[in-house]
Amino acid sequence: MLVLTRKVGEKLLIGDDIIVQVIEVNRGNIRLGIEAPGHVSIMRFEVYERIREENVKAASPKAAMDIQRVADLWKKNKGENH
């Protein structure tokens, strides 16, 4: 991991076209501005992690057994068929 120090207002260039600027530092909170091309996805890491963990759980082999029961329950509750 590259570790470096920047002051408020200073920037980083990542690759050719991604610019990260330190906008504000306030009691442990750091506000960043990011300029990047539209196809580059930028997200809070914790949200990505939540989705990743949820995907792993959803793909559990046990799900195949359960999905049939859930489908039966759905049809019974909603009283409908496709």
């Binding site: 959803a58 046990k62 859930v70 329950l73």
Partner: peptide, 13 residues
């Protein structure tokens, strides 16, 4: 949307 049945109880999907 992707569903998750890992709770093991159909009602809790």
């Amino acid at each position: 949307v992707i569903v998750n049945t890992s709770a093991g109880v159909p009602e809790k999907i």
